[in-house]
Computed example of a mutant assay.
Amino acid sequence: MPLSNVSQPYAAITLGSNSFNMLVANTVGNKPTVIAKYKRKVRLAEGIGDDGILSEDVILRGLDCLSMFASMLKQHHIATENVAVFATATLRVISNADEFHRRALPILQHEIEVISGLREAELIYQGMVATTQGDGRRLVIDIGGASTEFIIGDGCNVLFKTSVPMGCVLFNQRFFTQYPLQHVDFTQAIEYVGTMLAEYREQLLTLGWQNVLGASGAVQSVVSVLQHRQCAEIITVDILNSFRDDILSQQDASLSGITGLTAEQAPTFAAGVAILIALFECLSIESLYLAGGALREGVLQLLADRIANA
């Protein structure tokens, strides 16, 4: 392919409440082509105190990851104007966000843009459309560390979007604090999801959908365990209830007896399974598939379009 058809490299960085991600890409044939991926489970939402202040040790954890990203930006020779840095729920709500921004700027050499939950939902949907085959009306669910986005769309058109302040890291702090876990932990978590979703449930069900896609670490963890066990990668409520039973049989937070679950996935696995069970029950979902991409891919597409039109 002629060199003129390949763009300069660019990077989409997303600072989530559970994971920080960076995608490096070139545009080839008008489409972003990822050439490198970097990810770290920073679990930013773990550090939110009752006073709304993000703790120093978690700030340092985040800044350390940004230092790694900065070195990768240099390694890939990415110009500052070809970088987008978007942050989500935790940096939306903490009272010392300005301090995090101030300390991050000299490391990344780039401003962090904190996006609203609705903007996040839009970008999640765009990332799904750019990476996932299929058509018809689709419900996309992205369970993050501190927020969960729900989007119904038809093709490229978004018909409904919302962001609900619940997620795996927050659920760990609220419901899954003491191992071995008990049935009541799941029951309380599931009831809480129903309460949080109550005001949107009727609108979601009225719009309806043909397929449900999950675009989150929670869904990725379930699918990766199914892959490891050489099972079909379709999530059903029976599979989720089976995972709940597996979790309840474990004696400690490592969940080391669950075949196919990695040490990185274990800390938020119970919370993710609980939220998914609740959503299957509340929204009468029959099956759920893993989307090809979500927020980071949406930001990447946004950046690619911005560079192409510059």
Score class of each variant (00 low, 15 high):
T27G: 02
N211F: 10
L118A: 13
G153Q: 05
P267V: 03
F175N: 05
L91S: 05
S224I: 02
V299F: 04
S256V: 11
R201W: 09
R102S: 13
I235K: 03
L44F: 11
Q173H: 13
S7K: 10
T177P: 02
E286T: 15
L213A: 00
Q8V: 12
A84C: 03
N241C: 11
S242N: 15
E199L: 13
T148S: 13
F269A: 10
V85Y: 03
A45K: 04
V164N: 05
L170I: 11
G260C: 07
L170H: 11
V42K: 00
E202H: 10
Q126V: 08
M72C: 08
K39N: 12
E122L: 10
T268P: 01
P165T: 14
T14K: 05
R306W: 07
S55A: 14
F171M: 08
Q173E: 11
I48Q: 07
G136M: 08
G49L: 08
V237P: 02
G145M: 03
F175D: 05
R174T: 14
N157W: 00
L54F: 01
K37L: 11
D98T: 13
A270K: 02
I247W: 06
V83F: 00
V222C: 06
R92P: 04
E191T: 15
L15W: 08
R138P: 01
L139F: 10
D51Y: 03
G257L: 09
A198L: 11
C65L: 01
H228M: 05
I258D: 10
M128V: 15
D154C: 10
Q251T: 12
K39G: 08
A270W: 02
I13P: 05
V158T: 13
Q178F: 06
D64Y: 08
R296T: 13
D98C: 04
I307A: 04
L123F: 12
G134N: 08
M196T: 11
S4M: 13
E191C: 12
L290E: 10
R306E: 10
H77Y: 11
G145C: 06
A12Y: 04
K161M: 12
P2N: 14
K74D: 15
L23E: 04
T236D: 07
A271M: 09
P165F: 10
L290H: 01
T262K: 09
R103E: 11
L303A: 06
R201S: 12
L261P: 02
S17W: 06
N172W: 01
H77K: 15
I190W: 01
D305V: 02
V93G: 06
A274Q: 01
E81M: 01
A36Y: 15
L290T: 06
I235A: 01
T187E: 15
F100I: 14
T195A: 12
H228R: 06
I13Q: 03
V42L: 07
Q230A: 12
G208K: 04
I275D: 00
G16M: 07
N5K: 14
Q8F: 13
H77S: 15
A304V: 06
L205D: 09
C231F: 11
G217N: 02
L159A: 08
D185I: 08
